[in-house]
Amino acid sequence: MGVDVPLPLGRDDAGRHVIEYVEGVSALDQLPLGHDDLMRVGRLIRQIHDASEKVDLPDSEGWNLLLPAENPDLMCHNDLAPWNLIMGERRVFIDWDAAGPSTRLWDLAYAAQSFGVLFEGQPVEEATLRLRAVVDGYGADEPLRRALPEALGKRAAAMYNLLKSSHGTGFQPWADMHVNGHGEHWRAAAEYVLRNRAAWQRASE
């Protein structure tokens, strides 16, 4: 099955890469998404991962990946989040510049947390239902479901550690993001996910 992505339109007179404009609204402005939309998100992520299996995986050595996965075996988007999903007549993920070798688990963990809104302050039972909808929409098999709760915690912690270390080294834009609210957000998000791991386990069963 193919994947709907913005079409490349070549380069403009200034040499800039031009892509198709996709009409719609950002999923970020629609959060929290309802059950049917979350199921659809899960199916879309599955389509992307299944299609990626047909792409030869390049040597992962030398890739400058911000949050590398252990034992990468699939080309992934690496930022499947509400701010990168356009919702309209088409549902299209944009911003593919971070694509690179990863795994279904690592990619899905980030997407499931962000679309499920598994963040500090969210009622856990509501977040659990949203997480289940994404995972069920994806059609995750039993090994993936068992591994997901732990991966959620690791992925959130990795995001916080990226921001924290970037602040120490001055690596932009993450260094500024760390002190502009993102650092505290992801610190709290990592703690929230770890603290409620039993709920995510129930959602993944």
Rank of each mutant, 00 (worst) to 15 (best):
E70R: 12
G34T: 10
M39H: 12
V25T: 12
P58S: 12
N196I: 14
V3R: 07
G34C: 11
D79C: 00
D95I: 04
V193S: 05
G100Q: 07
V134R: 00
A190I: 10
A111V: 15
K154E: 09
E53G: 15
V22L: 04
G100L: 11
A99H: 09
G137M: 13
E23F: 08
G88F: 06
W200G: 08
E142L: 00
Q113T: 13
A112L: 01
A147L: 09
V179S: 09
E53P: 01
R130S: 12
V18K: 03
E150D: 10
K164L: 15
N78M: 08
L118F: 07
L118R: 04
V18Y: 09
A109G: 05
E125R: 07
V55M: 15
G183K: 00
G121S: 07
L65V: 03
R130P: 15
C76R: 07
W63C: 06
E20P: 00
E23T: 15
L85K: 11
L9A: 02
R146M: 03
A147M: 04
E125S: 13
L28I: 13
W174R: 08
L105A: 06
P173V: 09
L28E: 04
E61F: 14
E23N: 11
D13W: 13
D97Y: 11
S102W: 04
P101I: 06
H167Y: 15
L44W: 02
M87L: 14
E61W: 12
M177H: 07
P72E: 05
E23A: 14
A158C: 01
V193T: 09
R202P: 04
R202E: 12
G153N: 10
P149M: 07
E205W: 02
V5N: 02
A151W: 01
